[in-house]
């Protein structure tokens, strides 16, 4: 609880805010948020993908890297400081690495498509989108495994359970004392 993790989280949020400001100040692009589809009313089109990323591509990439870092740090904050062992940090760091790889593969596949105009398909989607759909979904699975399989080691240990049970017992005694005093009334 007394660790410096909150400062790391704060620093990441400050950097995210800075990236958002930089993106807001970037030269505007007509189709940055989509344009009406030329033939079908009610449908939006993306248009020229390279133009949309020309000024903000690197910033957006950095934004997502920071966000993934923030996600893993927040998960770490959810673990009691006493349980943030070296082993857990390695697991968390590996989870972040996995998420960053998925993000990099998605972004670079999209870049490759923008350059070549061709793409392979994987399980129904163009490669870049497949990284998004399957990769992002699977990207957080290591975190879920750490939570579920490491529950008794990092999240809620038998020692934690004992401590909480004793807290409940203390509370019950205090409530009974209070009720007793109220029942006996003023002396």
């Amino acid at each position: 609880m007394q660790s410096k993790l909150i400062y790391v989280i704060f620093a990441i949020v400050v950097l995210i805010a800075g990236v958002l400001i930089a993106i807001s100040l970037a030269p505007p692009v007509a189709n940055s948020g989509g344009i009406p589809h030329p033939d079908i009313p009610g449908m939006q089109a993306g248009g020229d993908g390279a133009a949309r990323l020309e000024y903000i591509g690197n910033l957006a990439f950095a934004f997502q890297c920071l966000l993934l870092g923030l996600i893993v740090c927040l998960c770490g904050l959810g673990v009691s400081a006493r349980r943030r062992s070296r082993e857990l940090m390695i697991y968390m760091g590996s989870s972040l690495g996995f998420m960053l790889i998925v993000w990099w593969q998605m972004y670079s596949s999209h870049q490759a498509f923008l350059e070549s105009g061709t793409t392979a398909y994987f399980m129904g989607f163009p490669i870049a989108t497949a990284w998004q759909v399957y990769g992002t979904w699977l990207g957080a699975i290591p975190l879920i495994l750490i939570y579920s399989m490491g529950f008794r080691k990092y999240i809620y240990t038998p020692e934690d359970e004992e401590k909480f049970d004793s807290l409940l017992a203390e509370r019950k005694v205090a409530e009974q004392d209070q009720a007793g005093k109220q029942a006996s009334g003023p002396q």
Partner: peptide, 12 residues
């Protein structure tokens, strides 16, 4: 772009 990862609405 509509079927690429950032869709028609764009990356941000």
């Amino acid at each position: 772009e509509a079927i690429m990862p950032f869709g028609a609405a764009g990356i941000m």
